[in-house]
Design a protein around this nucleic acid. Structure first.
Lengths: 331, 331
DNA sequence: CTGAAAGCGCTTACAG
DNA sequence: CTGAAAGCGCTTACAG
């Protein structure tokens, strides 16, 4: 494909460069015969417009960054997958940016994306979002966050109702006959993680049962430590709520290593609804987040903000997904 | 950040635009005092060069596409993670492109990346690589493939020695005392998957034991079907090799659902060495692929090809990772 | 409805 | 070692 520029198409079609541009970008502004002729010629040549040149001239592009802490975490992978689709449908290209939890990288991505004239960005945080960092960029006001944000109503957000999710989990476990229910926290940096934990603490208190926090750590080893703590107890709970599915996997794995069986010996329920959960051993009961919806909504919110400046905060409903990892307590 | 271009830096530093350009891009071509002054001024202004404008002018960028079929598959997620790092270290930005198995999308990504002046691309295939498609693009000769490629030695490749991996698995199982070893195939479209299966068939024959292919499907349900097949057998094998870790998970999960325990009732070994395997229940014995090395090498091969036109085919050694899912056969 | 011109933010021969 | 000029591939007022 040698040097196929707008000018060679123009020459081939016998029109001016600007007419070719219009034929592609503002079709209604050019006589339909002219347009069709141009398009045909372009097609024949195999010509497509350079997104680079377009972005440079227009000062806006269709690149939209999705900033995630760790693509290896299936929650973010699933989010990335659905968002790729959502973006495609709307003519954007999603640029996956992985921070590995390094805030400096987030900053780097922001400036890079500003330089790429990204119309907006999506951030799925691993730590509480630094609203100051957001403000340091023009870009900061064109970001939507997949988490709750504190102290800055200017940024649109999508989340799932954490309290409601924990309530669903607790109700499910109660209805099975459990009265002593432990909790292992998840990646604890986010508001979401904190909300889940707070909900557990409050709702336990309300139901009159003492909360048993098996681990409140913020890393992926929380599950392993939670299991150790469980194993060391004289009177362990008969069920465990894990703050997210990955933690639930780790809990079950560590428990299994010590011969504790799920759900026979202890019930475990996760939070996320990862596809992987269906293929875990045992298949994981969990609180499902509508990940696909979150992805679509995030993009809609960004477009809406771009269009009319409105800032929405959407809270989605979670859903109980009963599989094999929960059952009644041992007699 | 209002309109921070090379010209405003030039003005502020009292030099010509071209000198600023050199200060950044060919530092040795400008007097060190001048350079330092310019850099200081730029820094003060918070200026960085526009990658868009650079790419447009230079006709080469630092965007490098990584084309994967499904980011939700942890193998590709782990690959993406290590490649993001490898790319960063060398000053590239990785652009994650997800095809969802749609070859049309691959084509689309190729043309997009050509338009972005990507210096090269990496493709991690889900199906046998279409060498014709590669040739349709200039770009096709600047691609490195993470799989074996047939009938086109012109494209650099990195793979792991499939036969050696299967041999490792078989030896491990034999040494544990297993003589009847089944096989469940993986995502069967790739050469890699086919090589693993072929190796199993051949090596089984060589060792004098009849191969037992529990499923040869090409989708994620192969594991589930393999388990069903196992359950229906009068004389099932005492160990199962799964073509990849995800399939192994599914096998174990489905088996568990029917009360068959791993490794007590049957041993299961995977292939990939996913981080997730360590947290499965039970922790998965597997053949580890050096995923991080594959990522780094892929980029090196691409750079090498760009530099001197050389085309290498690297084959890496897999490694046995013994965890909890294998043990001696039931007495 | 179409053309001619200026310019987005850079780089790179070419002079000096 | 530095500057002036041309140009990468587009878009967008401005005329006509």
């Amino acid at each position: 494909m040698p040097d196929l520029s707008i000018d060679v198409v123009a020459k081939a079609a016998g029109v001016h460069r600007s007419t070719v541009s219009r034929a592609f970008s503002r079709p209604e502004a050019v006589k339909s015969e002219t347009r069709e002729h141009i398009l045909r010629v372009a097609e024949g040549l195999g010509y497509t417009m350079s997104p680079l040149a377009q972005a440079l001239r227009r000062k806006t592009s269709t690149f939209i960054p999705l900033i995630v802490p760790d693509i290896t975490n299936p929650f973010f992978a699933e989010l990335a997958k659905t968002m790729t689709q959502a973006a495609d449908e709307r003519g954007y290209q999603l640029l996956l940016c992985v921070t590995n939890g390094d805030p400096a990288k987030t900053d780097g991505y922001f400036t890079a994306m500003q330089a790429m004239y990204a119309p907006f960005g999506i951030v799925a945080p691993s730590t509480k979002v630094d609203t100051e960092a957001l403000k340091r960029f023009d870009f900061g006001h064109k970001v939507v966050v997949i988490d709750r944000v504190e102290g800055d109503d200017a940024v649109p957000t999508v989340t799932v109702d954490s309290r409601r999710g924990i309530m669903l989990a607790l109700d499910h476990l109660h209805s099975l006959g459990h009265t002593s229910i432990g909790y292992v926290s998840g990646i604890a940096g986010t508001h979401t993680a904190q909300d889940r934990m707070d909900a557990y603490l409050e709702l336990s208190a309300e139901s009159g049962s003492a909360p048993v926090v098996l681990d409140s750590g913020s890393d992926l080893d929380a599950g392993t430590r939670g299991a150790e703590h469980y194993l060391a107890m004289d009177n362990p709970p008969t069920a465990i709520i894990a703050a997210n599915d990955m933690v639930a996997f780790a809990v079950i794995s560590a428990l299994g290593q010590s011969g504790v069986r799920v759900p026979e010996d202890v019930s475990v329920i996760g939070f996320d609804g990862l596809a992987l959960g269906a293929r875990f051993n045992p298949a994981l009961t969990t609180i499902r987040q509508p990940i696909a919806d979150m992805g679509h909504i995030a993009i809609e919110l960004a477009e809406k903000q771009n269009a009319d400046g409105s800032v929405d905060h959407i809270v989605l409903e979670p859903e109980l997904l009963v599989r094999a990892s929960t059952s009644g307590p041992r007699a």
